[in-house]
């Protein structure tokens, strides 16, 4: 039985350097990694804890845009008034992860990089058009959230890259977002289906921009462009909503497993996307 080395670098550069070692794993909140280590599913040789890096857990507003540190906890996100106002869908998704206790640690960075198809915050971030700030040996790069997950448990990040922050764009007036998930219980569960929608309206209430993303219906969270397109130009009439549902159902490629059947997931993904769209619209008008 070999031990696990624990490192807590004080800068992004140090973290990137620490990740050069074979078998190193990044830890943000640790709410997935530590559980996986305990049951023997993850066996890292080195754990690189990000939380001592200055700013890695901060939430900053910059000219209307938001920068959320990769290790900012769900609790901190939920308490940030500006973020709650601008991106209620992202906040509600982040706050659905785990229990109250888990919220004290669970982060958006961990939720994305754990790469579960059912991760709650990911469809909300994709709908929001969030970008990832990624640091590596050659400096920083940016990538859209939908480009990170590649398969269950796998990401497009190189072994020596670290996700350091999310950038949420400045909101146009009359914008709103929402995230809904289906679990058989009321909490402490994993999404059978999740749906995030972000919309922008014009002054008359007509949809001028829309992004729709669904989770747990494919190997990764999906950006369903056709579903967003179904809303653009509409005033959320039944025809547009039916088109949105059809687009989501067509994009969904779920599996049947212990958490739900493929047929059920497909139907419910469409239902949740429509409901989330209407909530996002109402928030945009408010």
């Amino acid at each position: 039985m070999s031990g696990v080395e624990y490192l807590s670098p004080g800068s992004v550069a140090e973290a990137v350097k620490a990740l050069q070692v074979e078998g190193a794993r990044v830890m943000a909140g640790g709410t997935d990694l530590l559980v996986q280590m305990r049951v023997g599913r993850a066996k890292p040789r080195v754990v690189v804890d990000l939380k001592r890096i200055p700013g890695i857990a901060d939430i900053r507003e910059q000219d209307g845009a938001f920068i959320i540190g990769a290790a900012a906890s769900g609790a901190a996100i939920g308490e940030h008034e500006g973020l709650r106002k601008a991106w209620p869908g992202v906040v509600e998704a982040a706050n659905l992860i785990g229990s109250t206790q888990v919220q004290g640690r669970a982060s958006l960075g961990g939720n994305l990089c754990n790469a579960s198809p059912a991760a709650d915050s990911v469809p909300a971030l994709i709908a929001a058009g969030a970008a990832c700030v990624i640091a590596g040996p050659k400096g920083e790069r940016e990538a859209p959230v939908e480009a990170i997950q590649t398969a269950p448990g796998k990401t497009s990040l190189a072994a020596n890259e670290v996700l350091v922050a999310f950038r949420l764009p400045k909101r146009a007036v009359y914008s709103g977002d929402a995230y809904l998930r289906l679990i058989p219980r009321t909490e402490m569960d994993i999404a059978v289906v999740g749906a995030g929608v972000s919309v922008t309206l014009d002054a008359s209430g007509k949809c001028v921009d829309a992004r729709v993303s669904v989770g747990a219906v494919a190997p990764t969270a999906l950006l369903v462009e056709a579903a967003g397109a179904a809303l653009i130009g509409s005033s959320f009439e039944e025809v547009a909503l039916a088109k949105l549902e059809a687009a989501v159902a067509a994009a969904a490629k779920p599996i049947s497993d212990k958490r739900g059947t493929a047929e059920y997931r497909t139907k419910v993904a469409a239902v949740l996307a429509r409901r989330a769209a209407l909530i996002a619209r109402d928030r945009a008008k408010a």
Binding site: R185, T186, D189, I190, K258
Partner: peptide, 11 residues
């Protein structure tokens, strides 16, 4: 307990 779905208090 994650996938064997006993009710939680809020259910």
């Amino acid at each position: 307990f994650l996938d064997y779905r006993m009710p939680v208090a809020s259910d």
